[in-house]
């Protein structure tokens, strides 16, 4: 049952993702990629979970490495998105 329930969440999320991304203006496709970079850093949660029930030292090392990598993604992704988006300006009316 759990699997089917997760599958339902997955499939519905795919549809939401499809329609939301379709609505993104092509001018912002680069920031779209960096924002999705940032939020794909959500795997940090997975790494926190594997780090929380460590039984094997090697697994703890792998989890910490994954936390580090995902954190690079999260911080770097949001920072570069913010930088890019701050460049987009309207023309000042003279």
């Amino acid at each position: 049952m759990t699997f089917l329930y997760l599958l339902a969440i997955f499939i519905l999320s795919c549809f939401i993702g499809y329609f939301v991304v379709r609505g993104v203006t092509p001018a912002l496709h680069s920031p779209l990629m960096s924002v999705s970079n940032a939020i794909s850093g959500i795997v940090i949660i997975g790494a926190l979970l594997t780090a929380s029930y460590v039984r094997v030292p090697m697994a703890e090392f792998l989890s910490l490495a994954a936390i580090f990598l995902a954190a690079v993604n999260v911080f770097g992704g949001f920072a570069v998105s913010q930088r890019m988006l701050s460049l987009f300006k309207k023309r000042e009316k003279k």
Partner: peptide
Amino acid sequence: MTGAIVGAS
């Protein structure tokens, strides 16, 4: 949820 959205994107 997030993986699916990024994948779709």
